[in-house]
Design a protein around this nucleic acid. Sequence first.
RNA 1: GGCCACGUGGCGGAGUGGUUACGCAGCGGUCUGCAAAACCGUUUACCCCGGUUCAAUUCCGGGCGUGGCCUCCA
Length: 482
Amino acid sequence: MQLKLYDTLTRQKRDFVPLDWELGLPKAERRVRMYVCGPTVYDFAHIGNARPVIVFDVLFRLLRHLYGNDRVVYVRNITDVDDRINARAAELGVAIRELTERTYRDFAEDVQALGCLPPSFEPRATEYIEPMQAMIERLIDQGNAYVAEEHVLFHVPSMPDYGELSKRPLDEMLAGARVEVAPYKRNPMDFVLWKPSKPGEPAWPSPAGIATPGRPGWHIECSAMAWRHLGEMFDIHGGGIDLEFPHHENEIAQSRSAFHTPRMARFWVHNGFLQLEGEKMAKSVGNVVTIRELLKNWNGVGWPGETLRFNMLRTHYHQPMDWTVAGVEESHKILLSWYEDLSPVSVDEMPPPEIVEALCDDLNTPELMTVLHKLKREKQSGSLGASLRFLGFSGDISKLYRTYTLEAGVGQYAVSLPSTVQFSVQRYPNELQEQIAALKEARDRARKEKNFAEADRIRDELKKMHILLKDLKDDTTLEVER
RNA sequence: GGCCACGUGGCGGAGUGGUUACGCAGCGGUCUGCAAAACCGUUUACCCCGGUUCAAUUCCGGGCGUGGCCUCCA
């Protein structure tokens, strides 16, 4: 099946053929190579950060399916040197290394909860200073970069194709620029490859004979890490659309100039931006929602990671997405209805061709939803299960329970509980369980006496605790809202 | 100000030059004290204005709106 991907550089949906296949390398040497910009580890990742992680995890899974698990190399970097990290560490009064390690662990936990496979490599920027310096020296030697006031700057006019990704004519960019240009730049568009550090800031010996120790600029790390792991030219470079300019444009300038390649990556794949309840999600608006909050307690509800993953995939990755409570609830409902009647799936069972076909069409996950709904409708639960597993969903209904944070008397109870058709309130705190049992008995009595107003009142009260009642022929079951 | 995306029924969301995807919600029915759940059935769409065409939601131009980038940002 032929994978097609939309390439931002050419603005076209094209057939994807990995370079090694096109070159006809021996089978054992072939690799599909993908690089995705990862997190800057200074604070919990928010739901916007989760989008590329989930989207490219799906692409990773698809590539493994198409080319073989051992043929795909997926690199997602960790940016652990950055001014925001320095600021945050100072604010918290902790060592930079401690902050970055802790934040990375939190990120790894969150991402795992979202059903994402670990990438093949997760290189940290601070462990790649040496290749960054090697690239910088090379760029200077070749006349693509220069030293000025202890900075090393990339000279943009030395790269004739600059702007090819974002399609920005240089003169127009300058006309609209709102930033003050540092006086030592030869050209206003020139960007920093290396900068001197002040005392107390992270620093390494500087390249190019610069006396003051310094640290890398933002863009060079990705060029260096991609080079080390994937070579001078590779197949796919991914990330959020906001990175298109300047970050990816500058990566291209650095890598292509250093290695004299016609492309840095053969496909540039960008996911669209995410909004929250119709608003831009930003610290300035005060509506940033972290993955952690969504998993633990978002307006009283902790959502299963699989629900969050599913919700993300209901929108095509290229489209702008609006993240809403209503949307998450709908996702959760759909997933529950599917998980309820999955039959056991054998490990070897493959998803039906339509599933792979939908993904091969530029990761058309909404189309994929249609296929999944069809499998459900036609009661093909084996195929449904195999498809879900393929997409990173467990199919295990016990992983789909929500966590409620209740106000019950003093303090709050966070309760996480399973729910079956049987009584299943055992994970509520004891005093709540007693309360619930008493309410149920009271309601049973009221119903016997045909006092239905009272019975309905009690039902509403239980509903507030996320307990649902189902009146059967001669019994009433209690279950936790799922 | 410059550049770039996007604009589909109550909501979410694909797709297509001609045959009203799909899901959620809603409505009707079976069932129920009433509900819930389940099952069956079912309504509603392509931002505005021009143009091309036998025919446009789909192509082209303009407008309006939303968002992104130009400064850290997925």
